[in-house]
Amino acid sequence: MNKNVIAGLLALLLILGAGITEVLIVSNRYKVVSQRCNELISLAENNSLTQKEYQQFADDWSKLRTLSELLLPHTDVYEVTLRISEAEGYLIGGMNEDLVAQLKVIKTLLEYIPDNVVPDFHHIV
């Protein structure tokens, strides 16, 4: 096998490996953050969400955001960041109904974003 064929195979393995890793990592990490968001929604509905708990969630997102910006369009990631900041504002202001609504939007985004990296037919086309 000449070096060009080897280089081609290596490139292909790199792409496939990176793609599979991307789908697995992004899906799993977003799943964890999404579950955490679910818990926050329950707490917020019971009016028992504290700022400390929310800050923990925001920190989790901050770590995920760094990875996301490497692999995903920044516009999607920016949307979540914006919503999280807005929700924090509602929490501080005691606007519970808005907080719950915003958290539900964040949850939807956290489910929508990882779905976009799955190589489905409709995503490819």
Partner: peptide, 24 residues
């Protein structure tokens, strides 16, 4: 800047793979 660099790199590597495949 909103498009990750990895998108371009993967695309370019894909072109390279296609090139090698066609040569084969």
């Amino acid at each position: 800047r909103t498009v990750p660099l990895t998108f371009g790199i993967v695309g370019i590597l894909t072109m390279f793979v296609i090139h090698q495949l066609i040569l084969l």
